[in-house]
Design a protein around this nucleic acid. Sequence first.
DNA 1: AACGCGGGGAT
DNA 2: ATCCCAGCGTT
Length: 359
Amino acid sequence: MVSPSTFRKKLYHWSSLHPRKDPWIEERDPYRIWISEVLLQQTRSDQARSRYISFLKRFPTLNSLANAKEEAVLLQWQGLGYYARAKNLLRAARILESDYNGIFPQTPAALSTLPGIGSYTAAAIASFAFGHPTAVIDGNVIRVLSRILGIPYLPDTSALKASWQELAQRYLDKSAPARYNQAIMNFGALQCKPAAPGCSDCPFAIYCEAHRSGRIRDYPAKKKKLPRHERHFNYFLMVDPDGKCAIHQRDHDDIWGGLHQLPMIETSNKTEAADFDDYRLKDAFPWILHPTRPEFLASKTAVLSHQLVHCIFYRLSCHAHSAKIKPLLSFENTQNLVNFAFPSVLRRFITDSLKKGLC
DNA sequence: AACGCGGGGAT
DNA sequence: ATCCCAGCGTT
């Protein structure tokens, strides 16, 4: 078993040979670190990198974020997924302004009271910004320590979370928490990768229990597979005589909460254009007047972690009974659609439709 | 303790 | 096809 001091020494040596060039590297400002860490929650650095730059350009300071509208933050987050992250960023920014005088608290315990900041993000901000001696535990840290020490268990109960924290804490370099946390995560991401890890030139191969036993695949244990719920979303590209297009904001208690979409009818099965007669359209959309027969345009499946959302897109022309339009629905000029946040499957469809002149 | 929440890249 | 990503909040 590798001792903490040997582990750190070899980790730092590996680290010096594998410099990383992410824009948040060496960052000390808690606001910027916070943004990067939330972006990186369940998101690869390749995907987060450009978003980090653009988010900070749009919201350069805590104050600018706290004063933003949710719609603006969601627009910035468009296409990234897990949109609760964006909504929690805004909530936390407002709490930091109102309750903390715009100053970040410096301990993991205080940080983790903020919405969207859990144990990982709290440890990351505290160690990177303030040098707090707390070990981060993310997917990388778990994989590295799990393999080297031969511990298969994921921290998926409160007891296992506690023992993992205790273990990670023993290996942490308490004199340089930021450097250590950064290094072990980089090592996990670049060397001790989930699939095809670089064991042949790994500095820990001689200590590694997973490598010794030839059971690398068993460390750490796999999360149990989740069945995917299938859904059918029937979207209607509705164009009024002015060329405006109907959009509506989704409820917050379902996927893509708070984002926009086209008027939609969810069905339990696949549909075709003939399934939607005037009666059915008026039942679903009480404000609709003189709809033309829906025309099939496209179908596309959105693959989510827990759901398979089959989207079918139809087009129709109509008028709108303005008095019956609900608050969350509106007709927008098509050139204005770039100012609303859509889930990726809809953003792609809308972009294509504009290109083809369908709206 | 278990589940819901996106989207994408690597294998 | 499958895995899983610098996780978190709700139930």
